[in-house]
Design a protein around this nucleic acid. Structure first.
Lengths: 341, 341
DNA sequence: CTGAAAGCGCTTACAG
DNA sequence: CTGAAAGCGCTTACAG
């Protein structure tokens, strides 16, 4: 087992000083051409790679960016991560992904861990628990320490930082309108509890669309689900007790579970019930029939978040100006909704 | 913007030496109790956190483990990552996730980047391109430098290191047997090209099961797909040209695409065709009907890989002994296969 | 043209 | 009981 090569060893080997080696490798004109070339050849031969840790300590920057997401086993978040990766790698940054597991405590711990030297800035989406508690001291702390932060999707107004969100309310509004345009009259909504920021906004979009169409809002057609894992029961109950001809799900799981329940009951999609979901996921693409969706553009959100963060990291003069970028959702009409007649 | 607090600042503030502060904070009995308490109180008050980078440089270990996976937008890999996270966090390690995007070059670059100081060891699954090329110099290089490596799922015999795999051949064997037990006679196989290690093994399991049952192997029932994204066409072709009563898919996409094609053709699942897939994914759980699968236990694989890696990192004397852990797959019978009569 | 020195933030063996 | 010194691997302003 050969230890990693260091400048010191090269210096000794070639009988020059460490400083000379360092400069030669950065091709500084300080050093005589001959020496430079000799040293570079040697380094190449033995495959010298500078130690990142030492560089980080010296430069006070790590070229790492930290991403904290609530769950990795969740298609939307992974698309965002892959967007972040793409631009980060292009711009010379590494990505460190940590999971909060929807837990406030894990979110705090991970942030502290990363903040103490491992990264130059954060990209994150709040855990459910954090949104419920509305305790953001850890975020403010990071910002105070001069650690740039970009929040995406599940954001909080109380935090002053760059943000990337999608047009949750508008996107939903358009989707519900599409249902109405295809002749649906009674549209059920399966949504989350209100403290989840995106759930609340999507609910709002639904309400606006229904009202603007001149329909009445029927509270019985709206169900709010606490735990995504336990959505089957309330959905079954909705089918049992209510009459409707369309369903809007604020996320993929809700929408696809609704499709299944309809099929179990022998209902035809979209003839008997139309279904549309807010998602960018894989379930909708592979479902049968293929589900119409409002596309969340996770990759694009990730790319945008990474651009914003790296811009901030690299800008010369800090401005205290924060932007909120709104990514526009788009309707993907597949087979679970009717054609416009 | 307050910069992060350092030992130096505390030392100055309290008019003692840096060494004293350092020891006091580690609660060394070297330092007088009174001084110790005063310093600790001060540090706590100003929320001092040691700089990880400096610690890493000093200790020559980072307490980070690097995970390189081919794709993050792939449910199996994310379950593995979440297993790794779980035990890593428990044992005081951070996880850095990088993506190879199924590309050899990106795999090499990411490894080099991580290997130069950012992490103490690797957990990875090979990219398709790497498996096709059979070029493993980057892995050997890492091992040579004394960087422990655990390979999972897509492994290579040529590399001497710890490995975590699933019983691909056996699991498939059992699944195919299950199909046979439920009365299926002509079982089609949708698999990958042979250089993907797991695809090859699963194909082998299929062949063994068919032969052991005394059936004849019909090459026309076996299709090998190069690119997962483009599986629809060959699958359609299979349905058009061949007769069969069951399908085995070596991954979720293949299996679920087969289910869809069957449904489009008005075939009943499982009455007309049974379908089973090798996967641990989310598509099968939410498909309609729910798909029977061979469970890959990704979380468990991740946990095991992390345990092996951290054990190796923390063992006092290095032994040059490598283990291969085989995680046992399990059949999850849902609705896409018939009952045993 | 080359190298000694200081420093990034920390720890620890050693001297006093 | 406290602190100066050396060192982890690197860079850079400065002296020669």
């Amino acid at each position: 087992m050969r230890r990693k090569l260091t400048l010191k060893q090269i210096a000794k080997e070639m009988d020059v000083s460490i400083a000379t080696v360092s400069k030669a490798l950065r091709d500084s004109s300080d050093i005589g051409l001959e020496t430079r070339e000799k040293i570079q050849a040697f380094a190449k031969l033995y495959n010298y790679k500078p130690n990142n840790i030492a560089l980080s300590l010296k430069n006070r920057k790590t070229k790492n960016i930290g991403v904290i997401i609530p769950e990795i086993v969740h298609h939307f978040f992974t698309t965002v991560v892959s967007g972040v990766e793409r631009v980060a790698n292009k711009r010379g940054y590494n990505v460190i992904v940590c999971l909060s597991d929807e837990s406030f405590d894990k979110e705090v711990i991970n942030m502290e861990m990363l903040a103490s030297g491992s990264i130059d800035g954060f990209i994150m989406s709040l855990s459910k628990e954090t949104q419920a508690k509305k305790d953001f001291h850890h975020l403010k702390e990071a910002i105070n320490q001069g650690m740039p932060l970009v929040l995406f999707d599940r954001v909080a107004e109380e935090i002053y930082c760059d943000k990337v969100v999608i047009d949750d309310a508008q996107g939903t509004y358009r989707a519900v309108n599409h249902l109405i345009d295809t002749g649906c009259k009674r549209i059920a909504l399966i949504t989350t509890v209100d403290y989840v920021s995106v759930g609340k906004l999507r609910t709002q979009g639904y309400l606006n669309a229904i009202e603007d169409a001149g329909f009445e809002i029927d509270e019985n057609l709206i169900i709010k689900i606490e735990d995504t894992e336990d959505c089957e029961e309330p959905i079954r109950n909705l089918f049992e007790t209510q009459e409707f001809d369309a369903i809007f799900g604020v996320n993929e799981t809700f929408a696809v579970s609704a499709m299944r329940e309809a099929q179990v009951r022998g209902l035809k999609i979209p003839e008997d019930v139309s279904v549309i979901g807010f998602t960018d996921g894989i379930l909708s693409k592979y479902s049968y029939p293929r589900m119409s969706t409002i596309n969340q553009h996770g990759v694009e959100m990730g790319e945008k978040a990474a651009e914003m963060l790296i811009d901030k990291l690299e800008e010369v003069e800090e401005d205290e100006y924060y932007r909120t970028e709104v990514v526009k959702s788009s309707l993907t009409i597949r087979e679970s909704t009717k054609k416009i007649s």
